[in-house]
């Protein structure tokens, strides 16, 4: 059985994104209990140009984090390409060699390899595996020794609470940042439009397939040639993430799948703790270090206030308001009305 994370606080563990070594340092310095990151190749689900870590950068990052009592969790959470599984198993070997604290994986081949070859390293089930039932989660725990599951962003707090009573492993939930509307790891919308998707290539709605076209006084944001949204002159343009677009259906134009909002579950922290959640995850490996630093500080303060018996809602919303800059937020599926 793999070891426990060394720095798990009594309360909830704050798991923070790092797209670059600079962001890792920013997250550690801002008070992250754990940082997650990935290698600079297709083995992780944020495979964007110029992002992520080399093996050496991971080794240095682990050292920096460990010196300050922070854990490093490494995502190898795409699905290995048939015939090239070796790229993924090498990533697993490298993580173990770097002394990182956990591997985050979704693919059966990767889980199986990590379990058989590196049983001393903790194994976390990536959100890309979309495991939401006790049957599925217990199966992963029994078969591969998975010690934590990152829950898909489709569950309500009530469901999470019930689930925690029926499983033996830790749960980690997303609390801030980008919001997948579709069940993670089960979405091929991006590859339908562009040929590239989270599962195949570690990207969603990739920038190389985006175009902004001015037509008359309107600006259209397109992905793979499909119009995802349109903006009036002077209106802030949005990124054409496929599931956050405006479409025509049932004789109406609307954000059919989801409005262009981001997740903010800060107000739900007390309830998530009561529901038995172990760790809180912040999305955003593609974000800059200034952003990371601010968000991590805000959530760390919230968790600390919560530990002290207070209710951190007011403090956190004040701190996070600056981050969203008028962008809209949602508590997502955590409140059942979302569905």
């Amino acid at each position: 059985m793999a070891s426990n994370l060394t720095n798990i606080p009594q309360s909830m563990e704050l798991v923070c994104p790092a797209g670059t070594p600079a962001a890792l340092k920013a997250a550690v310095d801002a008070g992250a209990h754990s940082v997650y990151c990935g290698f600079r190749n297709e083995t992780n689900a944020r495979n964007f140009p110029g992002l992520n870590f080399s093996v050496k950068e991971l080794r240095d990052g682990v050292r920096y984090a460990h010196q300050r009592g922070t854990n490093v969790l490494v995502a190898v959470n795409t699905f290995a390409r048939a015939g090239d599984v070796g790229i993924w198993t090498k990533a697993v070997d490298d993580i173990a060699a770097c002394g990182a604290d956990a591997i985050i994986a979704a693919d059966l081949a990767v889980l199986d390899y990590a379990h058989k070859n590196h049983p001393q390293v903790r194994l976390h089930l990536s959100v890309q595996a979309a495991a939401a039932t006790p049957e599925a989660i217990n199966f992963y725990a029994q078969t591969f020794g998975v010690q934590r599951v990152v829950l898909p962003r489709v569950m309500s707090v009530e469901e999470i609470e019930k689930l925690n009573k029926e499983i033996s492993v830790e749960t980690e939930v997303f609390v801030f940042g980008g919001l997948c509307v579709m069940t993670e790891g089960r979405c091929a919308l991006s590859s339908y439009a562009t040929g590239k998707s989270p599962n195949l290539t570690g990207v969603c709605s990739p920038p190389g397939d985006v175009s902004y076209d001015e037509e008359g006084d309107k600006l259209y944001a397109r992905l793979g040639g499909f119009t995802i949204d349109g903006f009036e002159a002077g209106e802030n343009a949005g990124y054409p993430t496929l599931c956050k677009g405006r479409f025509n259906a049932n004789d109406e134009t609307s954000y059919l799948f989801e409005d262009p909002v981001s997740l903010n579950a800060a107000a739900l922290l007390p309830r998530l703790r009561a529901a038995g959640v172990t760790a809180l995850k912040i999305e955003g490996r593609q974000r800059g270090k200034a952003y990371i630093s601010q968000v991590v500080k805000a959530f760390r303060q919230a968790v600390d206030v919560l530990d002290a018996g207070g209710n951190a809602e007011a403090e956190v919303s004040a701190m996070l308001n600056a981050m969203t800059e008028g962008g809209r937020e949602t508590t997502g599926a955590y409140k059942k009305i979302w569905r």
Partner: peptide, 17 residues
């Protein structure tokens, strides 16, 4: 032009500090 190239440059500048 090539937005991937710009993104790579942007992420590198972010790391460069």
């Amino acid at each position: 032009g090539d937005t991937d190239a710009v993104l790579a440059l942007r992420n590198t500048m972010e790391e460069a500090d």
